[in-house]
Design a binder for these strands. Structure first.
Lengths: 221, 221
DNA sequence: CAGGGCCTGTCAGCGATTTGTCAGCCGCGA
DNA sequence: TCGCGGCTGACAAATCGCTGACAGGCCCTG
């Protein structure tokens, strides 16, 4: 899962980013409004965490512009405690949830999870594909009911493929979501990752369509 | 996704085309205004990248003529840095976005992605020609509803012919599209490819006009 | 601070699939 | 019927993806 964190206070930003990364998300950050707008408009994020007090361009304006351009990713807005005016305006602008500052990391994580789950359309917290079960809340994957010890990167890969089940995902897309903007890696890194995953989940958990990409679930040739 | 790149500097054009191709787009190029106008007026592109300084016919004029003829594909205009007059004029002429030169390839790609995403929904995702259906989004081809296992090259060929349905496409054009500017291959490679494809899609899916080229769909002899 | 273990990227070799090439055949159009 | 362009099946080359081994980096622990 790929997240954009928009926060101008560098210290807060790095703390929050650390927590989110530890929770298994791929986090990119923007520190001012223009950067945030550009990234949100051009990249595909699964969720945006948006602080309203920004230099350059107001957070609310950024959000409105995204929505005007049909960018519908879920947005979690960070507001000052009790500022009802902001919340009302935010609803109109298209925010999906609010978190008053200051907040507990625990609560932030819970809301992030909830928003992502909701946006995927899977109301349930688990995804089942054949013998493989992905518990998005516990970040745990089981095969035939037996929990598997996955590394963070492995988990992100199954999770992404699981959320996009029955669809062929091109390697470029996977790299973008796993590594963010960092394209330095050898293409083989992804292949090695898939191989390790198949060893844990069973060879048939993840399919390959030569020249096109990977997939989980059903898929006609 | 099919792109038209209009750029008179051959070196820049080939560099940019290479980057776009690597990003998975199907790129065609025009090097002067008249050619650009003709292609944009007669072919269906998902996006046009238009340099303004062109020999033959000014880029701005080309754009205006397209719009006057109800050609509404998104157009990304390349302007000289800071030339505000051009930008204002471009807005009136119907440009969708601007990129000041010189630019980073990264930024170009980001904007191309953004424009295409924005315009999605304006065009159908599937092309149906007789019993053959091309789902351009899933990169999947079906015959009578039965999905076929196509190789990447085979897919690119049907996809191209499908986008140019009812028109006879000369072999040279196909080779250019499939192999880029690399003409090292035997002309027979294309014939072999067509043969393999006909075996999968049915002999009548692709027609031959002796001495002219291949086509899908109806064609006026 | 050193040592060890885990995670992940890189490398090299292998096997399968895809694609190009060749040679001969077919059939359209004159 | 003839000749040429296009077709086809077989084979060879190139490419792609997989795998096991290895190494660097990071974190934890003593």
């Amino acid at each position: 899962m790929r997240l954009l964190l928009v926060e101008d206070d560098a210290r807060i930003a790095s703390d929050v980013a650390a927590v989110l990364t530890a929770a298994g998300y791929s986090v990119e950050t923007a520190s001012d409004g223009k950067e945030a707008w550009f990234l949100g408009d051009t990249e595909d994020y699964d969720l945006v965490i948006l602080d309203l007090g920004l230099p350059g361009m107001d957070g609310m304006t950024v959000l409105k512009r995204w929505r005007a351009n049909d960018r519908h990713m879920p947005v979690l807005v960070l507001t000052a405690r009790g500022s009802w005016a902001e919340r009302v305006e935010g609803i109109d602008a298209g925010a999906d949830d609010y978190l008053p500052k200051p907040f507990q990391f625990e609560e932030l994580l819970a809301r992030v999870r909830a928003l992502i789950r909701r946006s995927v359309g899977h109301g349930a917290a688990t995804i089942a594909i054949g013998p493989v079960t992905i518990d998005t809340r516990a970040m745990r994957v089981s095969v035939n009911g037996v929990p598997q010890a996955l590394t963070p990167l492995e988990y992100r890969l199954v999770s992404y493929l699981g959320h996009h089940r029955d669809r062929i995902v091109p390697p470029t897309e996977l790299q973008e979501h796993l590594y963010g903007d960092d394209y330095s890696r050898d293409a083989n890194a992804l292949e090695a990752l898939v191989a390790r995953l198949r060893k844990k989940l069973g060879a048939f958990a993840i399919g390959t369509r030569r020249g096109f990409g990977y997939y989980m679930g059903e898929h006609a040739p």
